[in-house]
Design a protein around this nucleic acid. Structure first.
Lengths: 184, 184
DNA sequence: TTAGGCATGTAACCCGTTACATGATTTG
DNA sequence: CAAATCATGTAACGGGTTACATGCCTAA
């Protein structure tokens, strides 16, 4: 009754082609950065487990133990089946937590200065996110017909953009309202 | 080097007045529902620990062990200090995960029908969220001057509204685009 | 009287990060 | 040759959910 989405993210990426644990982490950090994350401490043990269960296999010619070298994994048919099974399940709604909004809720405990610092940090962070998403969109637009899922990736990127635009607009407004309020 | 925001949420709520673990959970589920969550399995043990550390105390006249009855906790001065200390720290950025977007990324594995079901669920969920946020906003607008933090709560609610509006608009557009694409 | 909400609590278990350890390869 | 990056892996630890156990009180 647990999620363990990690294993399915790994299977999904390996379904696009064989790669190493390091590659998987890199792709998640870049392509998925707005809606997913994993750590090595999750990825490597999970690769091992998936291999033992027969959902993955080492590529032949690669060391399967001993020497510390690149280890490329390939998904098996069983692995593809497991992935397809997970895909067809309704997506779990993850709990969301925002320490930023929590602290805004108790803003009267803080100085005006401190609050506007927090809001400023929030704003800058989402400004950067927006920049990255816009760059990713341009790239993706030029190769939208290359793969079946590029059309979908574009839609995901655009959602990310709109959300970040909302964050930015809201933060800017809030800073203005705070100033107006201070010398009323 | 760990977060443990749970204990500070508890301290923050108890700083508004004494209450039970049950009350704390209810408030988080209702007022914080768009940006925070806790389970009883976190709250009760944490209340115990905080009491042992002297940041909380049982209200006199309440059973401090034995009979299973209402147990109201009150924050101590030390507890207030700990809370203020946490408040002044820059908010941690929590990792965010969306299984929904992950599955959209691999949408070509699914039938058109399945995808639009997922998008439809997403849309309905955020439609409900938007309704609730709008109702909370009306309530809050009528009592905005009652407490120092009501002004802030209003801003938080409005951010939630805008984000949910973006989700809804995006989902509607996506469903339209999917239909256009199907009979091209 | 019974269903539902109030109310507290624990144990098992998994999730996930962090810190640490190790070493190869590439590039300035 | 040194630094950065590639690359794999484990152990410890805390975070957090879920399932379970218990029992009171109140309204239909």
């Amino acid at each position: 009754m647990r999620k363990n989405a990690t294993r399915f993210v790994i299977l999904g990426l390996l379904a696009e082609g064989p790669m190493t644990g390091y590659d998987i982490k890199k792709i998640i950090d870049i392509r998925f950065r707005y809606f997913w994350s994993e750590s090595y401490g999750q990825i490597y043990p999970e690769l091992k487990k998936l291999t033992k269960e027969g959902l993955l296999e080492h590529l032949p010619g690669e060391p399967d133990d001993g020497a510390r070298q690149k280890k490329r994994y390939k998904i098996t048919d069983e692995g593809k089946g497991a992935f397809a099974g997970w895909m067809s399940l309704p997506p779990e709604v993850e709990r969301q937590r925002s320490e930023f909004l929590l602290k805004l809720y108790w803003a009267p405990w803080l100085s005006q200065r401190k609050i506007s610092d927090f809001v400023g940090d929030f704003s800058r962070r989402h400004g950067k996110d927006l920049d990255i998403l816009q760059r990713m969109e341009s790239e993706m637009e030029s190769i939208v017909d290359d793969h079946a899922n590029h059309w979908w990736i574009l839609r995901i990127l655009r959602l990310g953009q709109r959300v970040n635009e909302v964050y930015l607009g809201w933060a800017k407004e809030l800073l203005t309202e705070m100033e107006e309020r201070e010398h009323d």
